[in-house]
Design a protein around this nucleic acid. Structure first.
Lengths: 155, 155
DNA sequence: CCATTTTTGACCTTTTCTGACCTTAGTTTA
DNA sequence: TAAACTAAGGTCAGAAAAGGTCAAAAATGG
């Protein structure tokens, strides 16, 4: 009962099992599976997102391509999602400090990293306060942690 | 898969890997790759800009030439301050891509890191455009790079 | 029967490639 | 020596070659 999307997904997964990164051409793949090119986008959007552990990169124009790269978030495979849930759209100074403290406690982050993140973000927030600061703080923290996360668990 | 422009870029990069500065003749290069001379200009304009870390000089007329010079960028001394100068308060998508590309070129950043930074920041910017996006992009990139930088140059 | 997922197609944007025409700098000639 | 010629490189607009988006239709599962 597998749909066409499942087949395409399976095909791409097989390629990705052998290489960390693959390059495909949307048109060619669509021809291969006898579907419309946008179907390929659908498969990528529903099955190869960053939450699934993949990065998708593409280039238009002549010689264009779509590159899919496998990344290992392991052993905390759902870290990005957890970040979304925990950080949310706004984050106060106290909330951030508490969260960083907890990460250090759980040994997911070294003390130095935590201090660095704090100082860098604080500097970035100079002049802002209230809701603006909270919104920006949430975004900055998310980017900083994802960046660190990748360093700590390279693919 | 790779376009003609990619091939020409690659060829020039190989020459530039061995010398800090090279001189080419547009016509000859065009003949070599069996394309129109203006294609060479296209490659230079899209892949050897100052953002990519290159300077291009040329002279017309008999004995004319195109000189491409690689600029060596010294990151060490004061990374945070330099980031300020280079990134500025606002940063377009293209500027960011060019800058990341250059960091990868100079082996200050791995390809995976660059791709991750790009994707995380892009995700963080969904829904925004124009000046808002440019401002936030600048801030996010700065935090991401400083975070990575600490990993690479602990102190 | 309804909600969700999949599939399709019309239309859009970006990147590459080409060619006609322009400018500049040496070289030759009247 | 000035004009004409030749040998470069520059510009720009349009065609071509990709991939992206979005909403509607179709299929699927509960």
């Amino acid at each position: 009962m597998s749909s066409l999307s499942d087949l395409i997904e399976q095909y791409l997964r097989e390629l990705l099992a052998r290489a960390e990164s693959i390059e495909i051409q949307r048109r060619q793949l669509a021809r291969m599976f006898r579907c419309v090119p946008s179907q390929i986008n659908y498969v990528l959007e529903t099955r190869f997102t960053i939450h699934h552990g993949y990065l998708v990169h593409s280039r238009r124009g002549g010689g264009g391509f779509i590159r899919i790269t496998r990344i290992n978030w392991e052993p905390r495979s759902n870290f990005p999602q957890e970040l979304d849930e925990i950080i949310g759209r706004q984050l106060s100074q106290e909330e951030m400090d508490g969260f960083l403290y907890r990460l250090v406690e759980e040994e997911l982050l070294g003390e130095n990293e935590a201090a660095l993140v704090q100082s860098v973000i604080q500097q970035e927030l100079t002049g802002l306060s209230g809701e603006d600061a909270d919104t920006l703080r949430a975004r900055l923290l998310r980017v900083a942690l994802l960046t660190l996360c990748h360093q700590n668990y390279p693919g």
